[in-house]
Amino acid sequence: MMNFRYEDYPFELFSVSHVAAIIVSFGCMIGLYLIRNHLSGRSKSVLKWNLVVLLVLSEALFQIWYFINDYWDVAINLPLQLCSISLYLCMIMLITKNYRIYEISFFASMTGAVIAIVTPELFFGFPHFRYFQFFIAHLAIVLSCLYMTWIECYTLTFRSMLRAFIALNLIAVIVFILNKLVGANYMFLSHKPYNASPIDYLGEYPWYLLSLEGVALILFSLLYLPFYFLRNRKSIDEL
């Protein structure tokens, strides 16, 4: 279950094992929401550090797996995919509780990681190590942002959305340059994913990159709406 033989553990989009992973992931998100008001200081700390451990282990084991199989490559294993960047941001966010990191992490994670769970760029299916590592890592990313929102009560503003959008574009410029230097496809800035994904409907290269900008703005706006409505509702209730 630790080898690199794709054919031994093929991944099939929306197969039983994939749908099961989606159900478990969204079940965990719902579960976190339901217990949000029942966590004490100690239980909050335990949950936070468990998330940190999951993030660290999922990334460390991923890198070790590539290394021991002699497949580690600078064009594949640098943490420059959107979800890899989100994972590191979430680690920093949980440990430091930095609000600016939270702003970027939330918008990046709740788009990239959630989409990755539903339409993963994954070649190994159940019960391969990579299947579990992939879904655990992406779920931990999402739960980390929801933890900061629901448990630590962090909130977002319209400016948060703009700052996150600008920050991700600056990151994308750096990643694009690194892609050219090492021949990589981090953040899918060089070509589309090999597996089926929503990007397939956004046009050919390089035009789909412009489409992604529009999609990102739409998704960021949808993510911001609950915060907007809650803030307005709170203002009305205080009148």
Rank of each mutant, 00 (worst) to 15 (best):
A172V: 05
N50G: 14
V74L: 13
S58N: 12
S15G: 15
L181F: 08
S43A: 02
L223W: 08
S160L: 03
A164R: 02
F134S: 04
M1W: 13
G41L: 00
C90Y: 00
H138D: 08
G112N: 08
P206Q: 11
L39V: 10
L57K: 06
N69W: 03
N69P: 06
S58I: 03
H18P: 05
F106V: 02
V52P: 05
R36T: 11
L61K: 04
M29G: 10
M29R: 09
S17Y: 11
R100T: 12
S43Y: 01
F129D: 01
Y228G: 02
V74C: 01
T149P: 01
L178T: 13
L80W: 08
V56D: 06
V175H: 04
R5E: 15
S160A: 08
E238L: 12
S45D: 13
G125L: 02
R100P: 04
A137N: 15
S190F: 02
I64T: 14
F124S: 00
F176R: 11
R100V: 09
A116V: 02
S190G: 10
L212K: 05
S45N: 12
V175T: 07
D200P: 08
S15D: 13
L54A: 14
E213A: 00
Y6D: 10
L222E: 09
V19G: 00
L47F: 14
K192S: 05
L162I: 12
W65E: 13
I35C: 12
S58H: 12
S190L: 00
Y131R: 07
G31D: 13
F129K: 06
T119I: 02
I30W: 14
P226D: 09
R100L: 02
I166Y: 08
T157C: 03
I95T: 13
F123P: 00
H138T: 08
G112V: 01
L225A: 12
